[in-house]
Design a protein around this nucleic acid. Structure first.
Length: 484
RNA sequence: GGCCCCUUGGUCAAGAGGUUAAGACAUCGCCCUUUCACGGCGGCAACAUGGGUUCAAUUCCCGUAGGGGUCACCA
């Protein structure tokens, strides 16, 4: 590759950014960076009907948050702008006219009624498919001029050859061939003067010097149409890399419509964002050395097209969760604290504990930040609990054991001053030895007694430290009276 | 339905003619252990199918089945 690689991410602002979208952006970015090229953002907002307010901002924010940077884009500028298709309307018309001059496109004045009537099965081909019949192709120059002058609404259609085949080489799928007779004379310029994707894409990619087109497989079989235009213009065809989709299950693509995870949903649930990006990179791609946990920079370094898979990949949140946990453990205490903040705030216990201590306990125990509230609510909520919580076969513990141990332990603990984990642990073990019971019996009973929870983010001494002496003794007392 | 494309364990996936068919997640079991985790060790589990080609096919070719995409004045 002697020419400088220029690739682009070209989303349409129709809502939230889902995992599949982000992944396309990621792959484009990885490829461009790997090849020391440029990655560009272009917003495809030619369909006003589908435009969703704020969607463009979500695209900027998501890419920025994920660390996928582009050198040119609507919000960054660049030498080939504007990068917002709606601002390029005149350009498309100008090029569409060039295509008409070359005979590769033509004006079409057919009414919606006529078009609708063609859908009638009486004119369908043997496969039951109706295609535009090239009716307006036969219009003379004079007729076209007259219609134009009369202000009759028109569209511009691509003139697909009636015969022949289009073949091209896809970087992941290999050679792809499609018969021209299976293609329709698609609309290039809509009656509102806006281009369709089919056309804007070709014009913009060329004008923006995009030489590697990376996009979803849904364009795999329509690509020959685009090549026809490149050829007609006398432009060099770009290289194509089509990406298989991310699925929700074996037969459904991931979609926002079904409430499937978007990047921001996952962040809101508390997944570590680096893990999200890392995981989606792995959905459909595997590096040569089979690494799994990688930073963005490592992904760039390891990226190669032959590691892309051709078949769809099913999104598995369980694995994402695991990866998030891996990243979680590596977060520094400060970073963890910072990112966990909003989740601490969701807990009823917020502000009523030593946060630094909790950070250490929680870090290796959660995979996503969203687990935090449920994990620490016991710090604030302490209600009567089922004494069966004391039952633990392995620790040889049960309600009766608790009844015997707890009052003595309460008396002992009243005298202890150092409520740090280490000192408590030492004292508790000594207590167990003095009483002639197993460590586990004391520790288990105590933990249950002061937390009222079967699962806590640490053991008895850690929970006692977290609660502090006073709360510890209060709860112990309540637990004892509940037992009698 | 026509056309294009895809098919390795439950999931993500290595392997590209000869392998005991990797690894990861999930799952199960054991160890560690003050619960839960973490960590360590181990188990279960796959080449959709039928024909070829070949000394040898998971790997190459053809068919079948299954799945995805496409057939819009949406991208």
């Amino acid at each position: 590759m002697s020419e400088k690689v220029r690739t682009r991410f070209a989303p349409s602002p129709t809502g939230y950014m889902h995992i599949g979208n982000l992944r396309s952006a990621l792959y484009g970015y990885l490829f461009a960076m790997k090849e020391k090229g440029e990655f560009i953002l272009r917003i495809e907002d030619t369909d006003q009907n589908r435009y969703v307010d704020g969607a463009t901002q979500i695209i900027y924010d998501t890419l920025a948050d994920a660390g996928i940077s582009y050198s040119e884009g609507p919000d960054k500028g660049g030498p080939y702008g504007p990068y917002l298709q709606s601002e390029r309307k005149e350009i498309y018309m100008e090029y569409a006219k060039k295509l008409i001059e070359k005979g590769a496109a033509y004006y079409c004045f057919c009414t919606p009624e006529r078009l609708a009537s063609m859908k009638d099965t009486s004119v369908a081909d043997s496969n039951g498919v109706t295609r535009y019949d090239k009716h307006c192709l036969s219009l003379t120059k004079e007729e076209v001029e007259a219609n134009l002058k009369a202000g009759i609404p028109f569209v511009i259609r691509q003139n697909i050859p009636p015969e022949g085949k289009g073949t091209y080489h896809d970087m992941v799928f290999g050679d792809v061939t499609v018969d021209y007779k299976d293609m329709e004379d698609g609309i290039l310029i809509k009656s509102d003067g806006m281009p369709t994707y089919n056309f804007a894409n070709v014009v913009d990619d060329h004008l923006m010097h995009i030489n590697y087109v990376i996009r979803g497989v849904e364009y795999l079989s329509s690509t020959p149409k685009y090549n026809l235009m490149y050829d007609a213009f006398g432009w060099e065809r770009p290289h194509y890399m089509h990406l298989s989709p991310v699925m929700k299950d074996a037969q459904h693509k991931l979609s926002k419509r079904n409430g499937d995870a978007s990047y921001q949903d996952l962040v809101a649930k508390g997944y570590v964002k680096e893990a999200i990006l890392n995981y989606i990179a792995l959905l459909g791609w595997a590096p040569k050395d089979n690494s799994e946990k990688m930073t963005l920079a490592e992904m760039v370094e390891k990226f190669s097209v032959d590691g892309l898979s051709k078949s769809p990949s099913i999104y598995d949140e369980a694995k994402l969760r695991w990866l998030s946990g891996e990243y979680m453990k590596e977060l520094s205490d400060e970073e963890f604290k910072k990112r966990a903040q909003p989740f601490f705030e969701q807990s009823k216990a917020y502000g009523k504990y030593d946060e630094d201590l909790l950070v250490k306990l929680l870090k290796s125990r959660i995979e996503i930040f969203g687990e935090i509230p449920a994990k620490i609510d016991f710090l604030e909520e302490y209600d009567a609990f089922d004494p069966s919580l004391y039952d633990n076969k392995k620790q040889k513990c049960n309600k009766e054991v608790a009844k015997a141990i707890l009052p003595k332990l309460y008396e002992a603990m009243k005298g202890w001053e150092d409520y740090s984990n280490a000192a408590l642990y030492e004292a508790l073990v000594a207590f167990a030895a003095a009483e002639g019971v197993k460590n586990g019996q004391v520790l288990w009973c105590l933990r249950i007694a002061i937390t009222g929870a079967s699962v806590t983010p640490g053991g008895a001494s850690e929970m006692a430290e977290l609660l502090g002496k006073q709360r510890c003794l209060d709860r112990l007392q309540r637990a004892i009276s509940a037992l009698s």
